[in-house]
Design a protein around this nucleic acid. Sequence first.
DNA 1: CCCTCTTGTAATCATTCGATTACTCCATTT
DNA 2: AAATGGAGTAATCGAATGATTACAAGAGGG
Lengths: 198, 198
Amino acid sequence: MTPRAERIPAEERREQILAAATTVFGELGYAGATTDRVARAAGISQPYVVRLFGTKEQLFLETLDRTLARLLASFRAALAEDAPGDATDREARLGAAYLELVEDRGTLLTLLHGFMMGSDPVIGPAARDGFLQVFRMLRDEAGFTPEQIHRFLADGMLINTLLASGIGLAAKRDRDAADLMDCTFGAHVAEVLERASA
Amino acid sequence: MTPRAERIPAEERREQILAAATTVFGELGYAGATTDRVARAAGISQPYVVRLFGTKEQLFLETLDRTLARLLASFRAALAEDAPGDATDREARLGAAYLELVEDRGTLLTLLHGFMMGSDPVIGPAARDGFLQVFRMLRDEAGFTPEQIHRFLADGMLINTLLASGIGLAAKRDRDAADLMDCTFGAHVAEVLERASA
DNA sequence: CCCTCTTGTAATCATTCGATTACTCCATTT
DNA sequence: AAATGGAGTAATCGAATGATTACAAGAGGG
């Protein structure tokens, strides 16, 4: 039949699909997402997604790689800003970089869904390796102390979880939910989280 | 055909199924788990699981309730120990209670998988409500300060994520993985995590 | 002894989903 | 103008899965 989608170079189309997949996998997880939903989000047909990536598993792996690369790139950019080399200052800059990533819900949620798949024989190792890349970055490139690493990762995971649970939506009606977000991160971060949940 | 499974009162059988479901959902998540795997883990047939719980969704909701109840009960028991009422001391006792829960991988992982389902119209609200119950407990019953709540939840989520990712397995072979666990939680907690991942 | 209720299964159904196949359309080349 | 190859889809297939149905087997009561 007449192709509805514009004809676009395969390389560019792959990138569109990966962007769509980041959103869909972030929202529904690996098992919950379907190749058809990714295809619709990318504006093309389901078989084409499969043809360009081989399998759903491979699509997820490439999506995971892409989100991890974005995370690391964002951190490295924050570290590269010309600023005093103080460790506390670097911590603040990385924190700000993380908060900017929250704006693109899909990136952080896809990463988190990857971490949750530890028992998968293929995705599990890939996700663990990604986690370790982040760890090494904080240790070797950011020069964080163990305690700084601990705090940074813990705060990140809490943000991820609150984001994934969609508690920002509840915060508009539920007083306790709003309290929780203010309480755990202060008004500024809470506002970012709430905005991203909408 | 001759029933292989022993005849057991329905109420008791439900509890067995919920225990099995906690393990299976914790490992595979809601979408990734099948009613058949839960049934096999409980030693009965798949249709019987469906009959006793109606739908897979309902089974997950009840499993979630059960895990949340266990978490809260464990915390309340820790708070009830006769000991000086100091807030820092309560924090330590709740932390120890949490670490004990890690031993039963399924409980914490099922909760975490529930939190990840924020976009589900039925499970999402239930999971958010569960999160808020924990929050209110820390605030009202444990008397935690906002900063204490923040730290406690953040550490919990990091533990959950490391547990889910199965990084304890990698720690045996990968030096960085072992470093990560030691680094973020100190040798004691790292050992618990490693044991629970096996 | 029969009746009935509870516990449980085998068989099967309908749907969903990932994947495959065979095709169309269009641009470029020769 | 015919040939080639890349971009894309419709149709369909097979496996998996949640759910339904119909049935079996034992326990207890009258």
